[in-house]
């Protein structure tokens, strides 16, 4: 199989360093533009308007309205982009934890749904299942944390 049991060599460390830098680079590439956009939005009335509009819906999960932006970005783009949005907003640890569990179950829908479809699952059922897990876990974290 692809990962035979070898011993640990400098090659192992090199591979780890490389993939660590790669993840950080991928993250930076996606996160920077999002972070900049959201920070600039914060200084305009746009973010306030978004926050007010989504406040009732996000309130169900104990989240402020602007958290809707994080969920949308995470689902349409990926987790790294969502992290950029979270980091640029001022959210409490509890709010970030709720977003983290919701996003863990449901993120990067375009890319990951395509993979699931390739295996033969229907896009609708995969997305519905993931969203249900996100909603339930979000509600639970809000109540329990």
């Amino acid at each position: 199989m692809p990962y035979p049991t070898n011993s640990v060599t400098t090659d192992t460390l090199k591979r780890g360093l490389k993939s660590g830098i790669e993840v950080t680079w991928q993250l930076a590439k996606v996160m920077l533009p999002i972070y900049f956009t959201v920070t600039l939005l914060k200084h305009t009335p746009v973010l306030d308007a978004i926050a007010r509009f989504f406040a009732p819906l996000m309130g169900i999960f104990g989240l402020p309205g602007e958290a809707a932006l994080v969920l949308v970005i995470g689902n349409l783009v990926n987790l790294y982009a969502a992290i950029g949005a979270i980091a640029s907003l001022s959210l409490s640890l509890k709010e970030i934890s709720i977003l983290a569990i919701m996003l863990s179950f449901c993120h990067s829908l375009p890319v990951e749904t395509a993979l699931a479809k390739k295996i033969g699952l229907s896009a609708v059922s995969v997305i519905a299942a993931r969203m249900a897990l996100a909603v339930l876990s979000g509600l639970a974290f809000n109540l329990l944390l």
Binding site: Y3, T5, N6, S7, V8, T9, T12, L13, R15, G16, L17, S19, G20, I21, V23, T24, L27, A28, M31, L32, Y35, F36, T39, I83, G84, A87, S88
Partner: peptide, 24 residues
């Protein structure tokens, strides 16, 4: 943004190295 990236790099890079070691 630079601070957040630094914070993440500090955790992700050692984690990836640890994972390669565990894989091997």
């Amino acid at each position: 943004s630079l601070n957040s990236i630094k914070q993440i790099a500090i955790i992700v890079i050692p984690l990836m190295i640890a994972m390669e070691i565990l894989k091997d």
